[in-house]
Design a protein around this nucleic acid. Structure first.
Lengths: 225, 225, 225, 225
DNA sequence: CATGAATGAGTCTTCATTCAT
DNA sequence: GATGAATGAAGACTCATTCAT
C-alpha cells in the first residue's frame, strides 16, 4: 500500500512531496485523516487554485503550522491525498486481478469493471475533486505510477487466462484500464445522458468483454475442437 | 465553431470568460493566435499555476496591457485556448460522423477512432498542456459542453447505421467517445508500455468495433437479405 | 564602479543577488535611491532582522511589489545597498592610491588614512547600519571582494614607493587596510574613550606610518648615503 | 568571568537576555556546553537567520522545551554564546596585560598580539560563526562592553611601561586593540593573500610594536641612564 | 492604441514560544 | 523535569489587474 511513497526509487522532485511524519500514533492518524477530509472538501467547494493551506487547516480545525508538521508543503499534501485515493483503487484492482487469475476472460472483464467502479464510486465527491489534482504536474506522475501498477496486475491476469492467449497482453491491459477511466469520469462529472448511470456497469462490462474477446488468440486446444 | 462561446445559453459565470473582441481584423487574428501559442508554451514550460498573464504576453511578444485588450482576465484566456482546442476535436469528430451516416458500424468505429486520434495528436504538446486547464473549474464545464456536442453527433450517426440498431444509442455514444479519452491521454503523457503508440489506433478500433458490434440489435430485414 | 555586480565572474549563489533592472531612467534612479535610503533608515531604527521588505517599501513610499521590480529578493536589496556603500569607499581608496604612486611612504600612509576616513565617515549612520549586513553570509563575500580590490591598489602603490621596497607588499597592504577597519568601527559605534574621535586620524596616521616604515627594506641608494 | 552578565548595571533590555539558571550542577554545565556547541554548529551550517531554537536543541540532542529551561529566549542563547566567546578572549588579554605590567613596550606589543591571536584562533569556526551575531543589535553592545574591559587593561599596562610614557594611554590602547581586530577577521574569513596566515603574527607584532614605539614620550630619567 | 510600472491582497512557509502529557 | 505538538503572527514573494504616459 502506498508503495509509491517510499523514498527509494523516488525522483528528487518527488522526494520533496513525501509527508513529514508517519501517522504512527493514534492522534497523528486522526490529524492526517482530518487533513485529507478537509482537503477534499476545500477542493470541492473552492477548486484547486483556491485550495490553500490556510483554508485546509482551518476546515480541518487546526492551525497552518500543524498542517506543516505533517506535510512539507502544499503539493505534498495534495499528492498525499491523491496518492491515498489512487492507492485504494489500485488495491481493489490488484485484489480482483489476483482473484481471477486462471479464470475465463469474460469473468475477468466483468470483475475488473466491477472492482474499478466500486472503488471509484465509493466516494464520488472525493473522486471528482481529485481530477484537478491529477491534472497538475505532480499529480500526473502519481497517476502514471499507479496506472503502471494496475496495468502490471491486469497484464498478469490476462496472461493467466484459461481460455485465451494475447498477442501483447501489456498493451491490451493498458487499453482495458484506460478505457474505463473516461466513462467513469464522465459519470462523476455528470456529463452523461439521463439514466446513463444505471447502465454504466453493464455497458463497461460489454465494452471490456467484447474487447478482450476480440483481442484473444484462441489456444490450440480450443482450436482443435 | 466555438459555438459554445456565444452569449446566449451562457451562465453568468461563463459570461466573464468571453473574449473581449472578435478577431475580425487580420492583426487581431494574428495577435490572438500568438497569445494562444504563447499560452500553450508557458503552460508546458511552467505549469498552470505559473502560467501568468505577464509571462504569456511576454512570450507572445506584447505587453500585458495588450493581452487585456483581447481577454478580460486570465481565466478567459485559458478558457479560450482550451475552447479552441476542444472545438478542433469536436469539429473533426462532427465532420466524420456526418460523413459516415448511413454506413456500416464497423466503418463508423474505424472512422471515429481515426478522426479523434488525428485531431488529438495533431499537436501533442498542446493536448497535453491543456489537461491541467481542463481539470480546473471552468475547464470541466467546457469539456462537458463539447463532449455533449460530440455525443449528439455520434448518437445521430449510430442511429443511422445501415446494419444495426441500438437499444440506447446515446448511452452507446457516450461510452464510445469516453472510452477513447483515457488511452489517448495515457499515450500523450507517456504512461504506456514501450511500443504502445504504434498499436494505439489498431487497438482502439478493435475496442470500439467490438463494442459497437456487441451493442447492436440486428435489424431483422437486414439479416434476411 | 560596482564592478563586483557584473554577471561574469559571479558565483551562482551571488547571481541571485543581482538587481533586476538597471536604473537607467530618471524615475528608476529615484526609486532605487529611495529604496537605498529607506533600507539604511530601517536598518538603523529596527535592526537587520526587523528590516523587512514591507517595512523598507513602506518607508520608501512605495508598495512591496515595486521593491520586487528592482530587486529579486531581500538579500539582493541588502547586498546592493552594501555594495554601493563599499564601492564608494573602494573608489576613494583607489583614487588616492593612484594619486600617490611614486611618492614617499609617509605620504602614502597619511593619504590612505585620510581617504578611508573621509569615505567611511561621510555618512556615519549608513556605515554603522551596514555592519550587520556585512556580517551575514552574502555580505561577507561582498566585503571580501571589495577588500581584495583595495588591497590590490594599495599593493601597487606600495610597490611604487620612491623611498622604500617591501618584502611582501601584498601582505603589508592587507595589514594596513584591515588595521584601519577596527578603530573606525569602534568610533562609529561609539565604543571609544571620550575625546577619541578628535585623535582618530592622527593616531591612525601614526599607526600606518610607523608600520610602513618598519616594514620597508631600504633601497640601495638610500643605504649608500 | 562573564561579569557583564550580572544583573546590576544592566539595561532593562539586556535583562531579558540573562540565562535562566546558573550552571551549578554538573548536568547543567554539560547541557549548556552542548547548547553552545550546537549553536556554533548551526550558525556555521545554516547562518544566523536559520539558526532556530528547534534546530539548536535538536543538534544538542534535547527538546526545545529543555533549551527554554536554560535560556528565556533565542536572543539570550545567542548572547550567551557570544558572551562566552568574548569573555575567553578578554580573559586571555587581561591575563597577559597583568603579566606584562612594568615591562618594556616591545614585550607588551608582542605579548598582546600573541594572546589575542591565540584566543581568537583557538576555535576559528566559532570565531567566524559569531561575527554575524556580533553584528546584530544585542551583539554590538556585548562587544562594546568586552572591548571596554580589554581597553582598560591595556591602558593600565601601557601606563605601567618601564621604558615609556604615553600622552593618552587610553586612546593608544583603543587603537592598539582595534587594529588587531580587522586583520584577524580577514584571516578567519579567508580574505587574505596566499601565505598570509603564516605572517600574521609577525606582521601584527610589527604593527603594534612600531605604533607603540611611535606613540611613546621617552621618560627623561630613563633616557639619561 | 500600446506599454509596463505600480499596486496590494493573498499565498506559502517558518519559527519562537507555550503547555498538556 | 523533559518532551515535542500546536499555535498563529509575521515575513518573503507573486501576480492579476489597472492606468498614466
Amino acid at each position: 500500500m502506498l508503495q509509491f511513497l517510499n523514498s527509494h526509487s523516488m525522483t528528487p522532485a518527488a522526494a520533496a512531496l513525501k509527508p513529514r511524519k508517519s501517522p504512527v500514533q493514534a492522534r497523528s492518524t486522526a490529524t492526517v485523516e482530518a487533513l485529507h477530509t478537509a482537503t477534499i472538501q476545500v477542493l470541492t467547494r473552492e477548486g484547486l487554485s483556491r485550495c490553500t493551506t490556510t483554508r485546509v487547516a482551518q476546515r480541518a480545525g487546526m492551525s497552518v503550522g500543524s498542517l506543516y508538521q505533517y506535510y512539507p508543503n502544499r503539493d505534498a499534501l495534495l499528492a498525499a491525498v491523491l496518492a491515498k485515493h489512487l492507492d485504494g483503487i489500485a488495491s481493489a484492482v490488484e485484489h480482483t486481478c489476483r482473484e481471477h487469475r486462471g479464470g475465463p476472460v469474460s469473468a475477468m472483464a466483468a470483475a475488473l469493471v466491477a472492482a474499478f467502479l466500486a472503488a471509484k464510486l465509493r466516494d464520488p465527491g472525493e473522486s471528482k475533486a481529485l481530477y484537478a489534482v491529477a491534472g497538475e504536474r505532480g499529480g500526473a506522475e502519481l497517476v502514471a505510477r499507479v496506472h503502471a501498477r494496475m496495468e502490471a496486475e491486469i497484464t498478469a491476469m490476462l496472461e493467466s487466462a484459461a481460455d485465451a492467449r494475447f498477442d501483447d497482453a501489456a498493451a491490451t491491459a493498458a487499453i482495458a484500464l484506460n478505457a474505463l477511466v473516461g466513462p467513469v469520469r464522465a459519470v462523476l462529472e455528470g456529463n452523461v445522458p439521463p439514466g446513463f448511470e444505471a447502465r454504466l456497469e453493464g455497458q463497461l462490462a460489454l465494452l471490456l468483454g467484447a474487447y478482450l474477446q476480440a483481442s484473444r488468440i484462441p489456444r490450440r486446444e480450443h482450436a482443435r475442437r
